[in-house]
Simulated assay, not measured.
Amino acid sequence: MTAPTAPEVQELAAAIREAMTVPVADSRVDGGRLAEEMLRLERMAQVRGALASLSEGTSSVSAAAETIRDSTAHTPVTYTPYEPKRDGGAR
């Protein structure tokens, strides 16, 4: 296996960041916080699996990034994200 390039490592870091960036659920919606936590746990497990393959030498940096991005695409946000109220008035 060849040493990864800086762009490959940057892609892996970006894929991990994207997977771990999960919006906060609107706590006023039933089950929202549980759905948020389940999404975080599922994505964390997917990242951990891709990194395990990388550290065991069975995956390349590029393949790990692609695996993380694919699994993130297959685990979308299915709950209502929190949105702060906008008063619409001038201050």
Rank of each mutant, 00 (worst) to 15 (best):
L39E: 01
L39W: 02
A90T: 09
V24Q: 13
A52L: 14
S71E: 09
S27C: 09
L41N: 07
L34T: 08
E83H: 07
R43S: 07
E36S: 01
L51Q: 06
R43W: 07
V9P: 01
A63G: 05
S27N: 13
M1D: 00
I68P: 00
A14I: 04
A3W: 03
G57V: 02
L12C: 11
P4C: 10
A50C: 06
E36C: 02
T2H: 00
T78E: 14
S53L: 14
P4G: 10
G31S: 05
L12I: 11
Y79I: 02
P7T: 14
A15L: 08
V47L: 03
D87L: 15
G88T: 12
P81N: 07
E36Y: 04
P84L: 15
K85D: 15
G89C: 11
D30F: 14
P84G: 12
T72P: 00
V61Q: 04
G32I: 06
E66F: 00
M44F: 13
P7L: 13
A52H: 12
V22R: 03
R86P: 00
P81D: 10
A50Q: 02
R91S: 10
A73K: 08
I68H: 01
R91D: 08
A64S: 15
A52K: 12
R86N: 13
G32M: 09
E56H: 10
T5G: 09
S53K: 10
A13M: 13
E36F: 01
V77L: 06
R33W: 01
M44T: 12
T72R: 05
P4A: 15
T67W: 07
R17Y: 12
A50S: 06
T78S: 14
R48G: 13
I68D: 02
A90K: 09
T72Y: 02
E66S: 08
R17C: 08
S60P: 03
M20F: 09
E42A: 11
A50V: 03
P7S: 14
S55K: 09
R86C: 07
L41P: 00
E56F: 12
A14K: 14
T2M: 02
A73C: 03
D87M: 15
E11S: 10
Q10T: 12
S60V: 07
I16Y: 01
E42P: 00
G32W: 03
D87S: 15
A35R: 04
T21Q: 07
R33Q: 12
T80K: 14
T58A: 11
G57W: 02
P84W: 09
L39F: 01
G49V: 02
S53E: 14
G57S: 04
P76H: 09
D70S: 11
R28P: 01
E66R: 02
R48Q: 15
M38H: 04
A63E: 08
E8W: 04
R17E: 14
A64T: 05
G49N: 09
R40Y: 08
A90Q: 08
A25K: 01
A15I: 04
S27D: 14
S71N: 04
V22H: 01
S53W: 07
P81G: 09
S62Q: 10
P84V: 12
G31R: 01
S53H: 10
D70V: 08
P81M: 08
R40E: 10
L12F: 09
T5M: 09
T72I: 00
Y82L: 15
I16V: 15
A90R: 10
D70P: 01
E56M: 13
S55C: 10
P81F: 09
G32Q: 05
L12D: 03
Y82W: 15
R69Y: 07
R48A: 15
